[in-house]
Design a protein around this nucleic acid. Structure first.
Lengths: 261, 261
DNA sequence: CCAATAGTGTCTGTGAGACAGTATGCT
DNA sequence: AGCATACTGTCTCACAGACACTATTGG
């Protein structure tokens, strides 16, 4: 597998690089909010999903893992393809102002006109979702960006290209697969309350759930271990902390949690 | 949109063609069997899915529609992307004998060595499922094949490349989406019996269903219109024919049939 | 009559959703 | 005590699954 590239001038056009790219919707969970890792272009307020190109002699899944590692420092992260985006105008942002800024900035940052031409053409891109513990990630910008940031799902900035619809599709995929993927185990910290869990579900399903029924149904699954209470200092009963019974959880996920919402 | 190509020597390598392809899992239903349209290479007993290449200035969905039309003569067919296959060895068939045959045959059929090299390299391919009325299709072989045939899902021949896993994934996608896609309306003929419908469901879900409960639950959906009886000549009660109440069916599909199996 | 399949009715268990009631931690 | 939130119990309705029963067709 080729090494990663550290500068734009190293791009081996028409040689090692295929005409396919990958974009990652990297999910994390913090302060009872579902978040996505976004990248900001240098100088301007232009945001995109972390992504990269696929080498010709590289498996697509390999490429996704490489890109994720470059951007978060993490290996062996849960990573799952969900859709491929191939509209011929997918690099046009709906907002024309952003388009202008991006065009101007690209020309400035990418001196070599051949590389500029290559990098700005239509790429067919495949979307992957990643699920990880937000505390373990150590985001690093790439050579065209100066900042990585976790953004709450309902407070996203305007995004370039078709990246907004990629996120939407990724979210839909996540909600559909919720019963078959270990989403909550991967996103929540080791210890969590039922409220944390419920808020996570509500974020993903974009829907309020009834508190008491949620708790009863969840506990009935038999995949949680009740720990000590968490005293919050508030004038009310303290919630229990829970952790996952990992073997049982893994077992259950295989046949599907069978949860209805 | 570019016109379709009628001969291998017309391939405009590195000019109009991207390095992406499309493979279609085209579903039909006949004699109470779920079938897939397959293509046979010239001379040898080598089978593949119908597919083709994506032009650089073409939407991916456009390309899929074009390819489907080239192969079946049909337009405005239900067509739905399900997964993208990008392993670097995906053009290797697990059966080495088939590999040898294919290699030999390719060299014979594709005279130009540059085109041979181009066409045999790794393409990232996106799988689409198509759902159509088997009686309306008029399959046509492409320039490397001499036969198209509908094959029952449980009697498939050995397939080249990774096409078997593409079919598997397509079938899985179909079964998962069964409550949200108008599968039975697209695959069944206008008039059908409950047994036809049940066999279709059983093929897709790969699972036997209980006859009387299936019927009751289906009829309760209120999306069928009961027609005359179908006298079969057998010594038993004749089944009713049904057709879909299309407006109600379409309405129901939007929110999901909510059928459990 | 019988055999075979179509279609309907009934029972049971499970579980979702609504909501009432109890427990607990802090002021 | 009083308040707020956590947790538990109970009721109802819907429906899946099992299976018995009736209807129809032709031998």
């Amino acid at each position: 597998m080729p090494k990663s590239l550290s500068h734009i001038n190293q791009f081996p056009i028409n040689e090692l690089m295929s005409e396919n790219s990958i974009d990652c919707v990297i999910f994390g969970y913090e302060n009872q909010q579902l978040k996505i890792l976004l990248i900001k272009w240098k100088q301007e307020d232009l945001w995109t999903l972390p992504g990269g190109f696929i080498f010709k002699n590289e498996d697509m899944d390999e490429a996704a893992n490489r890109i994720l590692k470059e951007r978060t420092g993490l290996q062996d992260v849960f990573l799952n393809q969900f859709y491929t985006f191939g509209n011929k105008d997918r690099k046009q942002t709906s907002d024309s102002e952003s388009n202008r800024k991006l065009d101007h900035l690209s020309k400035k940052l990418i001196a070599n006109p051949k590389i500029y031409e290559w990098i700005t053409k239509r790429f067919i891109t495949t979307g992957y979702i990643a699920l990880l513990d937000i505390n373990k990630a150590n985001p690093k910008p790439d050579f065209l960006s100066d900042k990585c940031e976790w953004k709450a799902i309902d407070e996203l900035p305007q995004l370039l290209y078709d990246h907004e619809s990629i996120i939407q599709k990724g979210l839909t995929h996540l909600s559909i697969q919720l019963n078959y993927l270990p989403v909550s185990m991967l996103l929540l910290p080791k210890k969590f309350t039922m409220q944390d869990l419920q808020k996570l579900y509500e974020s993903i399903l974009n829907k309020k759930l009834e508190r008491s029924n949620f708790q009863r149904k969840m506990l009935k699954l038999g995949i949680f271990i009740r720990l000590e209470k968490q005293l919050t200092g508030a004038a009310n009963k303290a919630p229990y902390l829970y952790c996952f019974d990992k073997p049982k959880y893994t077992e259950l996920i295989k046949k599907g949690i069978g949860f209805t919402y």
